[in-house]
Nucleic acid binder design. Structure first.
Ligand SMILES: [Mn+2]
Ligand SMILES: [Mn+2]
Ligand SMILES: [Zn+2]
Ligand SMILES: [Zn+2]
Lengths: 147, 147
DNA sequence: AAGATAAATGCAACATTGTTGCATTTTGGG
DNA sequence: CCCAAAATGCAACAATGTTGCATTTATCTT
């Protein structure tokens, strides 16, 4: 929240509520899910307010919107250099944020080769997390046993 | 269209129409824009049909959906190896598709380091195309002249 | 060239996402 | 505590996306 203050934005009830929702979520959440989660705890926020708060958070890089699903997550990297990227499990929705400056440089170089001046990279790797992978292995083994 | 045939899908009027819309578009287009463009040429397609056609095209990699804008484009790379990526001009919407296997390997390696098994990369570089860049330079110079 | 049939479309109904304008409330500073 | 700017709530609207089901159509078989 100090980020808001520091940058001249007010600390308000809706902003606190949305931030907490993002912190409690184990996976990317949609605006509607945020609203539902809050209302099930007795709170109420207008849909428009939620969009505006998420907009602000994304502008300040306090949160990100994942490209493929459109869900939102709280940023876990702060000012770490390079664009902030994600790996997401397509099975369970688990995700991790990371950054890699070399990768950004490489992408920007490729853009230059196509006559574009790169400003920002959106990047998401979709796959399977280790726990879902292990579950799948067990399932396959037991299926074999039954044939 | 032969891709559809070859993979066991029918060649239909809606599929032809949507494909042509994508081919004629100079920038990523939304489902609604596709519907409008078609109806202004006297054609009609149900919204649902457009979504279903776009879904199919994306599954077959005949088209792609750009992560940040959600707009659709026709694939211009065919079977080229590595995931298909985009650079997009945030000013005019011009875009180019490209692929780079080394970049994919690098991303997959980073995912492995986070205990994920990578399957697919979504990637979009947002920036300024060369023609928009030049326009901007001219504008800046003339503004200087007036101060 | 029909006819059969599985596939695809259109239509209806619904849910979510997203945007704008304006009146009212709230925050943070004086 | 008061004030002005900032943010919220509300209303209305537009676009995105999903499902179920009746009807049409593309392709295969005869
Ligand atoms: Mn981040
Ligand atoms: Mn492609
Ligand atoms: Zn998982
Ligand atoms: Zn441009």
């Amino acid at each position: 929240m100090q980020t808001l203050q520091a940058r001249g934005y007010r600390v308000t009830r809706p902003r606190r509520m949305v931030l907490q929702s993002l912190e409690e979520a184990a996976r990317p959440v949609s605006p509607h899910e945020i609203q539902s989660a809050l209302s099930s705890k007795g709170g109420y926020l207008d849909r428009v307010t939620i969009y505006r708060v998420l907009d602000l958070f994304c502008r300040l890089n306090l949160a990100h919107r994942l490209p493929s699903s459109g869900g939102f997550v709280k940023c876990s990297l702060g000012e770490k250099g390079g664009c902030h990227r994600f790996v997401v499990c397509r099975q369970c929705g688990a995700f991790q944020e990371f950054a890699d400056e070399a990768l950004c440089r490489e992408e920007s170089k490729l853009a230059t080769g196509l006559d574009f001046h790169a400003e920002r990279h959106f990047s998401e790797t979709s796959g399977i997390c280790s726990s879902c992978y292990e579950l799948r292995q067990k399932a396959l083994l037991s299926a074999e046993g039954q044939v």
